[in-house]
Nucleic acid binder design. Sequence first.
RNA 1: GGAGUGGUGGCAGAGUGGCCGAAUGCGCUAGAUUGCUAAUCUGGUGUCUCUUUUAUUGGGGACCGCGGGUUCGAAUCCCGCCCACUCCGCCA
Length: 425
Amino acid sequence: MLDLKFIRQNPDLVREGARKKRISCDIDAILRLDEDARARGVELDQLRAEQNTFGALVAKSPPAEKKALLERLAAIKVRHNALEVGQRELEAELHKLLLRVPNVPADAVPEGKDDSENVVIKLWGEPRKFEFAARDHVALGEAQGWLDIERAARLSGSRNYVLKGDLSLLEGAVMRFALDMMVARGFVPLSVPTLVRNEIMVGTGYFPGGEDQAYRCDDRDDLCLVGTAEVPVTALHMDEIHRLEDLPLRYVAQSSCYRREAGAAGKDTRGLYRVHQFQKVEQVVIDVADPARSIEHHQAILQNSEDLLQALELPYRVVNVCGGDLGAPQIQKFDIETWMPSRAGYGETHSASRFHEYQSRRLNLRYRDGEGKVRFCHTLNNTVAASARILIALLENHQTAEGRLRLPPALVPYMGGRQVVGRAL
RNA sequence: GGAGUGGUGGCAGAGUGGCCGAAUGCGCUAGAUUGCUAAUCUGGUGUCUCUUUUAUUGGGGACCGCGGGUUCGAAUCCCGCCCACUCCGCCA
């Protein structure tokens, strides 16, 4: 959410930001409502002030004077109530619109309509050239008895999977490696709920707008399954005012992630690429409202994930996500795409976002600065490792000619000291 | 799921219709005092918002879990919800 004052003072900047993101929103309607609401607010405050002064007199007045006072107060109340009802409606409407105003993207965000116009800013590693007929992760996984998609479909429908044996262990190994790496870098590990209140989804910017992508409980419970640990971790300190010396907060959390993938029918239907449930280790940073510092954090959390991919010996590229592919909440986003031979291309595995105050304003997540002023925090997050997709990359990039799987040295200690797993096919 | 108790400022805790944005204590903070530290004394110490001022400042309004209601007036009374705790039941 943007500051209403900011919108008032920079309407063109906000309009231009929305245009760049290809998100429609009616700034003029907001400004009109805002002006109207403030005018009514002033009048309401005046009426309340009168009410307060005369009300206090009632108690002290002799009975003879009370009647006149009460009559006067009754008149005030009539006007007040009429105004107040309208004011409530106005404010509710204003808030509704405000929730949908997109954050203003950074100048460094490239123009573009969708992901095809994201700008590659870095390449690392060489895609491997196979001197044998390479299998895709499904073929390899099924041949090794590591992957069972058919039975998973019986349990839970399409886009689900069962991992078995060494692949199940490998999932745990990657997650634990990611977690350990982040803890070594000073991030505080958290285990958090994956079922959160509706309010938390709004606070982190997923609602309104993303309802179709989230699994919701029925109306017995006001709960949603999160698509990422970003949600509960970023919201952990909502409604709090942090002391300056407690910032920055650096958190890392592993969680299950749930995505409905509505509207993706027929897209990426094979294998583990687009699934309803996966494991992910996520990093979240909460710090002071300093744009330069946010940029430093952004670089740092991007680097963390690059370091992980390099340790896993997986070729990747970093893209600067263009306006049209950016979500409403982000100032800027870098995606990391990892080489996946079966796609003959790079597939998105990480997403590093910078939000400024957009989330913290919704979450009422604040701190007291050096002058004692209360301000909204800046928030950022990035994937460290997301299980299903990182397994695709590991299986496909590190398969051997015999159909076995070579493990990068970083994972060897997490797989019982083995350097290769699976039998020769 | 049933029965009960409770939710007040950073924390503890008083407040049961106007004298309450809220006692008191702790914490924090500034100053005084003391060779230093500790202790003691004095002052300050919530958030949001409108308005005024170049700014400091001044004035108004709102907020005592959340949302409604009663009343001229609500932290206080009533209703709904959320949360916590205790007991019972059920269950991994």
